[in-house]
Design a protein around this nucleic acid. Structure first.
Length: 501
RNA sequence: GGAGGCGUAGCUCAGCGGUAGAGCAACGGACUUUUAAUCCGUAGGUCCUGGGUUCGAAUCCCAGCGCCUUCACCA
C-alpha cells in the first residue's frame, strides 16, 4: 500500500536527507525504522524484564529531592510528544495509565538522543530513570536509559480528538482500546465479571466443562444455526445454538453441578442487542429446581456487582438499577393482571385487551395472545431486577409442570431494565413427555422450517434416568451491558461481526 | 428485510452547483522543564463506488457498497 514516488523535482537542499514531499506518511516511518537499525538497535524490540506498571509508578512519591528519587522502569506507547530544543517530553501509556517522560540530550547519551529524534507517536519504548516532578509540577520519569521496543509504521489517530467514527472504531478495535478510555475499562470489567462468575460457581461446587461447538444436530433452543462441513467425514455439521443438551447428558452421567460459559452461534438478525455469536452461561444442578436457580442467579449477579466496586446501585442510561438483594419474585399471572388489568384466564377480557393494541387474536392460542400482551404491556415496567416466575405451561412445553397446577410451568425469567437476562427451569426429566413434546413441536413442519430440532440421542440419554434438576441460561454479554452501562452489545464484545469490506 | 441518517487528507471535521479547506498528525528549521508547547516554512485528496443531469458535480438525481438509528425477525 505504500506509495513510493520518485519526483523529478527532488529537493535542492544539501548536506542532509530530506524526505520526498509526495512521500506517504508510512514510508517516512519506514525510513526511521532503517535509521534505528543503523544505530545498531532492534526496531522491533526484545524482552524487557521487570518493568513496572505506570499506575504503580505514579503511586510512588514524586516529591523527593534529586538524588533520592525512586528508580523506575516502564514500557509503553508514545501518545504525545512536546519538543523543547535539547530536551523532549513524551507521554507514554500502558494499560494502567499514562505518565510523562523526559529525555534530555545530556541525560540519555549520544545514541539515546539520536534515537529520541526518530521517535514517532505510536512507537513503543522502554525507559529507566528517576521519578520526580518537573518545575511545572508534572510527575515525570527523567530518562537515563532509553530502549526501543517497537515501531509503528502507520500513523495513529489524532491525539486530541481520538477516534469518533463508530465503524472505524469497530474495525480497528486495537486502536479503540488505546484511544478511548472507556473501551479498555469495559473490557476490564468484562474480564472481572466473568472471572467472578467462575469463582462463584467454583465456591458453590460446580464443575466447569467444555462441550462441543460442532454438532450434528443443533438443538436446545429455537434458533437458526450456522452450517459448516467436515471434509474427512464428508458430513455437514452445525455450530451450536445452545449448551443445554450436552450439559444435561452430564447430569445423567452423575455430574451433579455443571456449567459452561461458552460461545453459541445463531444465524439471525443483528442489532444492538444481538450478535451472531454471543456468550452464554448455562448451568445445571441435580436434585434442585427453579427456586434453587433463583437463589443462585441472585447470588451470582450480586457477587459480580460487588466485585465491580461495591456500589449496589448502578447507572444504566438515564436510569439506575438497584441490585441490593433480595430481588422481587412475582408470578407471571399476577404481573399480567396488574399491568393488563384482566386475569390471565379471562379469555374475553384478554381478547378485548388485545384489540386495544390492534393485535389480531383470531385462530391464536389464548396463551400466545397473553404473552404478546405481556411483552407489550408488562415488560417495560420490569426495571427490576425481578424474577418473573410460573409461566403458562403452553409457552414452555419443555419445562416441568408445577405439582398440582398442570397449566403452570416451573420457569422464571430474570428481567432487568426490561431486558430478559436469564431464563431458568425446573428441567423436564421425563423422556416420554420430552419426546412427545419434541414431536408435537415438529409436527407438520418441513425440516428446514422448524427451528426446534429433535435430538434422538438426547432422549435416549434421558431414558437412562436424569435426576430432577434446575437449569439456568444467562446471556453473559447482556449482563455485562447492564453492569457496565453499555447500550450496545457491540461495545461489550471486542470483535463484533461486521460485514467484510 | 422496511424506513431514515451518514461516508471529504492518517485522525477529527467544515464546505452542499463555480480552482478541495481547517485543526491535529507528518516533513524541514529554532528552542534543555513542556503538557492540546510555541514560532517560521513544506507537503499531503479515487471528496465511498458506478452511472446520470449540467457549460461545470464533493455538492443535485439514480443504483450499489459499508456503518449508524429504528422497526420487523429472534426462547
Amino acid at each position: 500500500m505504500t506509495k513510493i514516488h520518485v519526483s523529478p523535482g527532488l529537493s535542492t537542499r544539501e548536506n542532509h536527507t530530506v524526505s520526498e514531499p509526495t512521500e506517504s506518511l508510512e514510508s517516512s516511518r519506514s525510513e526511521k525504522l532503517g535509521k534505528i537499525e543503523e544505530l545498531g538497535l532492534d526496531p522491533w524490540g526484545q524482552r524487557f524484564d521487570d518493568h513496572q506498571a505506570i499506575a504503580a509508578i505514579r503511586a510512588l512519591p514524586d516529591d523527593k529531592p534529586d538524588g533520592q528519587r525512586p528508580r523506575v522502569k516502564a514500557a509503553g506507547r508514545i501518545m504525545q510528544r512536546r519538543g523543547q530544543g535539547k530536551t523532549v517530553f513524551i507521554d507514554i501509556w500502558d494499560w494502567t495509565g499514562r505518565v510523562q517522560v523526559n529525555m534530555g540530550q545530556r541525560q540519555v547519551g549520544e545514541q539515546g538522543w539520536a534515537l529520541t529524534q526518530l521517535l514517532d507517536l505510536g512507537d513503543l519504548i522502554g525507559v529507566e530513570g528517576a521519578f520526580g516532578k518537573t518545575r511545572m509540577g508534572e510527575p515525570t520519569i527523567f530518562v537515563e536509559k532509553l530502549t526501543f521496543l517497537g515501531k509503528s509504521l502507520l500513523p495513529h489517530p489524532d491525539k486530541w480528538s481520538g477516534m469518533q467514527d463508530i465503524e472505524f472504531r469497530l474495525r480497528h478495535r486495537y486502536l479503540d482500546l488505546i484511544y478511548n478510555e472507556d473501551v479498555l475499562k469495559r473490557a476490564r470489567n468484562r474480564v472481572k465479571i466473568i472471572r467472578r462468575m467462575r469463582s462463584y460457581l467454583e465456591e458453590k461446587g460446580f464443575w466447569e466443562v467444555d462441550t462441543p461447538t460442532l454438532q450434528a444436530v443443533a438443538a436446545g433452543a429455537a434458533a437458526r444455526p450456522f452450517t459448516t462441513h467436515h471434509n474427512a467425514l464428508d458430513i455437514d455439521l452445525y455450530l451450536r445454538i445452545a449448551l443445554e443438551l450436552p450439559l444435561k447428558r452430564l447430569l445423567v452421567g452423575g455430574l451433579e453441578k455443571v456449567y459452561e460459559i461458552g460461545r453459541v452461534f445463531r444465524n439471525e438478525g443483528i442489532s444492538n442487542k444481538h450478535n451472531p455469536e454471543f456468550t452464554m452461561l448455562e448451568l445445571y444442578q441435580a436434585y434442585a429446581n427453579y427456586e434453587t436457580m433463583m437463589d443462585l442467579t441472585e447470588g451470582l449477579i450480586v457477587e459480580c456487582v460487588k466485585d465491580l466496586g461495591g456500589d449496589m446501585v448502578l447507572p444504566f442510561g438515564d436510569k439506575t438499577i438497584e441490585f441490593t438483594p433480595p430481588w422481587k419474585r412475582q408470578r407471571y399471572g399476577d404481573l399480567f393482571k396488574e399491568h393488563v388489568g384482566v386475569s390471565i384466564d379471562a379469555v374475553d377480557g384478554i381478547t378485548k385487551a388485545a384489540q386495544t393494541i390492534c393485535f389480531p387474536t383470531q385462530g391464536k392460542h389464548p396463551d400466545v395472545v397473553v404473552h404478546h400482551l405481556f411483552e407489550e404491556k408488562v415488560e417495560e415496567h420490569l426495571i427490576g431486577p425481578v424474577f418473573v416466575h410460573d409461566y403458562p405451561a403452553s409457552l414452555c412445553p419443555l419445562t416441568k409442570r408445577k405439582r398440582g397446577e398442570p397449566n403452570i410451568a416451573e420457569r422464571f425469567e430474570l428481567y432487568i431494565h426490561g431486558m430478559e437476562l436469564a431464563n431458568a427451569y425446573t428441567e423436564l426429566n421425563d423422556p416420554v413427555t420430552q419426546e412427545a413434546t419434541f414431536r408435537q413441536q415438529l409436527a407438520g413442519l418441513p425440516e428446514e422450517e422448524s427451528m426446534a430440532k429433535m435430538d434422538e440421542d438426547f432422549v435416549r440419554a434421558l431414558r437412562h434416568g436424569m435426576p430432577p434438576a434446575g437449569g439456568l441460561g444467562m446471556g453473559v454479554d447482556r449482563l455485562i451491558m447492564l453492569l457496565t452501562n453499555t447500550q450496545s452489545i457491540r461495545d461489550v464484545i471486542l470483535f463484533p461481526l461486521l460485514r467484510p469490506q
